[in-house]
Simulated assay, not measured.
Amino acid sequence: MKKLSKYCLSISGPDFEQCSQQLQLSEFVELRLDLYSLSEEELVSLLKTPKDYIATCRIEDEKTSITLLKKAIELGANFIDVDIRRTESFINELREYSSRYDCKLIISYHNYKTTPAKEELLSIYDRGISFGADIMKLATFVNSESDNSILLGLYSICDNLVAFGMGELGKISRLASLYCGAQFTYVSASSTSTTASGQYSYSEMKNIISAINQEQDKPISLIGFMGVGKTTVGDAFAKQSKIKFIDIDQEIEKQTSQSISSIFETKGEDYFRSLESKTLQDVTTNPSSVISCGGGVITREENRIILQEKTICIWLKADVEYCLNQIEGNNRPLLEVNDPLKKAQDLYKSREAFYKEVSHIVINVKGKSIAQICKIINEKINKPL
């Protein structure tokens, strides 16, 4: 299946003329078959649209719904959306029928009053996946900011998920979901033709994403404790993304024709930190780059301001013991002491708040491969089209 737009426009209708007009706005739409007043001929014409589309039918009568959804499958639907509260036989019949036509199955759960606890939502997700869902949709009403946190937190646990909140408080989650891993989000043709509370209009969403993408036209900086893998991850991600990789320590070594340990030994840490600040300021002028920073770069306020304001700053996070295992045998000037573990723990404790302060994105790297970390970075900074 070709790559879909990130914005699925819900066609509200209700008549054929309005459906046709709304179809012109987006290449990816949701046809709400339960909302329209159409003749048989108009329905067939609508279902034959060359647009990518999801066919949804919330009519209570299952026989009527199956008939309409099967017709949509036959005429080219990319997805059908089936509510998880339908009977098991209903879901199974449509799953089997859609598979014959290479039509994907979305199983959806809606709660128009509240957002259940995380554990309940995970149980609903698991049930939908067990029914054979290609995508599980969770849409719940948001009564507090913590409800948004519950919904968006599911993306770090669940694959093939589209989860967002309804209502005005939930509106932001429709946007944020795109940056958490949702394949798409739902929008309306206009502010007066929404099919659910809290929907952005297509133009609103496009304008917001455009503004965010302009803000995101910055280099990526990787921070974190020594040995966490900034250079390895940065180099791998840069190659994958076909952008420039810059390692600040390596840049300093090129400029001075000295190793970092030699600079520390002959001229001291303060001198090195000044070189580091100047190099950071210079390299952040290139937006198409990944910058690997030294573990102590965040100890200077001027560097923290640059990282926070001029880069997309990603903290690669792991515990001290993990980091020390990664650098065992390597020369690290700051750890050339009698008790390197104690020294490392003290350093980490003194820097942790700074890492947290400047980072826009935090990735726990322990137990993850380089490829997995790069995939997470890509998802976190992905720019919806």
Score class of each variant (00 low, 15 high):
residue 61 D to W: 03
residue 32 R to E: 00
residue 87 T to V: 01
residue 9 L to T: 10
residue 359 S to H: 12
residue 170 G to L: 07
residue 344 A to N: 14
residue 182 A to I: 03
residue 121 L to T: 08
residue 65 S to A: 14
residue 40 E to V: 03
residue 371 A to C: 08
residue 84 I to Q: 09
residue 90 F to I: 00
residue 250 Q to W: 00
residue 373 I to P: 01
residue 191 S to Q: 13
residue 162 V to E: 03
residue 198 G to Y: 09
residue 153 G to R: 09
residue 262 S to A: 14
residue 189 A to Q: 04
residue 220 I to V: 13
residue 242 K to W: 03
residue 7 Y to N: 06
residue 300 R to Q: 09
residue 238 A to K: 08
residue 265 E to S: 15
residue 38 L to Q: 01
residue 276 E to D: 01
residue 167 G to N: 05
residue 371 A to P: 06
residue 321 E to D: 15
residue 316 L to S: 11
residue 226 M to A: 15
residue 155 Y to Q: 07
residue 357 E to T: 04
residue 57 C to F: 02
residue 62 E to Y: 05
residue 329 G to A: 08
residue 110 H to A: 12
residue 102 D to F: 05
residue 127 R to T: 15
residue 88 E to P: 13
residue 216 Q to E: 06
residue 69 L to M: 02
residue 310 K to N: 15
residue 187 V to C: 14
residue 341 L to E: 15
residue 324 L to A: 13
residue 101 Y to C: 05
residue 83 D to H: 14
residue 73 I to E: 01
residue 39 S to M: 04
residue 191 S to L: 08
residue 26 S to E: 06
residue 130 S to C: 05
residue 268 G to N: 02
residue 118 K to T: 02
residue 345 Q to T: 15
residue 122 L to Y: 13
residue 343 K to D: 08
residue 56 T to P: 15
residue 233 V to K: 11
residue 295 G to I: 06
residue 381 I to R: 07
residue 67 T to F: 07
residue 291 I to H: 02
residue 99 S to C: 10
residue 336 E to D: 15
residue 25 L to H: 03
residue 63 K to M: 10
residue 353 A to G: 04
residue 189 A to R: 08
residue 252 I to L: 00
residue 262 S to M: 12
residue 190 S to H: 07
residue 215 E to W: 12
residue 28 F to R: 06
residue 108 S to G: 09
residue 80 I to N: 02
residue 8 C to F: 10
residue 128 G to D: 05
residue 154 L to Q: 03
residue 58 R to V: 01
residue 257 S to P: 00
residue 107 I to W: 09
residue 273 R to N: 05
residue 360 H to E: 07
residue 114 T to C: 00
residue 257 S to M: 00
residue 46 L to T: 02
residue 39 S to A: 05
residue 79 F to S: 06
residue 343 K to A: 15
residue 196 A to Q: 06
residue 312 I to V: 11
residue 106 I to S: 07
residue 335 L to W: 14
residue 247 D to P: 05
residue 3 K to I: 02
residue 319 D to G: 10
residue 293 C to R: 11
residue 218 K to N: 01
residue 113 K to Q: 11
residue 51 K to M: 01
residue 44 V to Y: 02
residue 186 Y to H: 06
residue 43 L to P: 00
residue 337 V to W: 12
residue 351 R to W: 10
residue 62 E to D: 04
residue 314 I to S: 04
residue 385 L to M: 06
residue 307 L to F: 03
residue 95 R to H: 13
residue 26 S to N: 08
residue 170 G to W: 03
residue 236 A to P: 07
residue 246 I to A: 03
residue 175 L to S: 11
residue 101 Y to G: 03
residue 333 P to K: 14
residue 239 K to N: 12
residue 133 A to H: 04
residue 275 L to G: 01
residue 105 L to P: 08
residue 16 F to I: 08
residue 206 K to P: 00
residue 191 S to A: 09
residue 306 I to A: 10
residue 192 T to K: 12
residue 216 Q to K: 12
residue 367 G to A: 09
residue 324 L to R: 13
residue 270 D to P: 00
residue 4 L to P: 04
residue 254 K to D: 03
residue 319 D to I: 09
